[in-house]
Amino acid sequence: MKLSNVFCKRNRVLLRELVITDFKLRYQGSVLGYAWSLLKPLFLFAIMYVVFGLMIKIGSVEHYAVYLLLGIILWNFFAEATNQGMGSIVGRGDLLRKISFPKYIIVLSTTISALINLTLNLIIVGVLMLFNGVALHWSALMLPFYILEIYLLALGLAFYLSALNVKYRDTSHIWEIIMQAAFYATPIIYPLSIVVAKSGAVAKLLLMNPIAQAIQDARYVLITRESITVSGLLGSGFYILIPVSIVLIVFIGGTLYFKRHSKYFAELI
């Protein structure tokens, strides 16, 4: 796999068709169709908001509703990209056994679908921001960087998990459990300030998780300065290099693992 081949014509064409197909097939046969990918996170948000915002009143943050929605949407993006990516190679087994093409395109196409979904969902965030009177700041331009961070992490994991899933189908179950734990280990529902109040060390540790860091930073630049970020909690922006390095290590490691094993997918599936 030469780097120049990564985006040669055939691969680009194929990637495009796979993304389009995925898009068309996702809500095949449902009445509301693509609206579901907007409605699902919206309903999840509504439930979370009623439970944690109104009943338990955990949300002591400014603009908690938007704050919560952005967290949920970014998390869902990560979850969707890794889950769909993980199953993509096995799911396209019929194709792999009959024609030769770079396998990474399959994983890439599912993560790009997730990225398209995220873009649509961010529109909802924008609308809610308008309703809540959240002022847009220049720093919001940093948002794509944090999304890229989550995307690279998800892509790296998707590469690794999809290759592993070819060998061991247990992977998807294990990942489901990990994701459940990770959801609560990431300050999505609860504001990080709650953890800081209990133990500053734990809060610092939680922020070394690239998704927690990216979500907190995204909230900071887009919604509220009350969002606790790495530079806010640890005193220096340099500490952000730790989660960013984790992202890069996972991405490179996942890509290499995938590359090494992709030769044998066709005969293993």
Partner: peptide, 28 residues
């Protein structure tokens, strides 16, 4: 190895032509 690789039953004939064509390296 097989005709119609990548054919999907949920897509229309037209959409399948483009998908299959992509596998042969033809763009839209």
């Amino acid at each position: 190895i097989e005709l119609g690789v990548g054919f999907n039953h949920e897509l229309t004939g037209r959409e399948n032509v483009f998908m299959n064509g992509a596998l042969l390296g033809f763009d839209h």
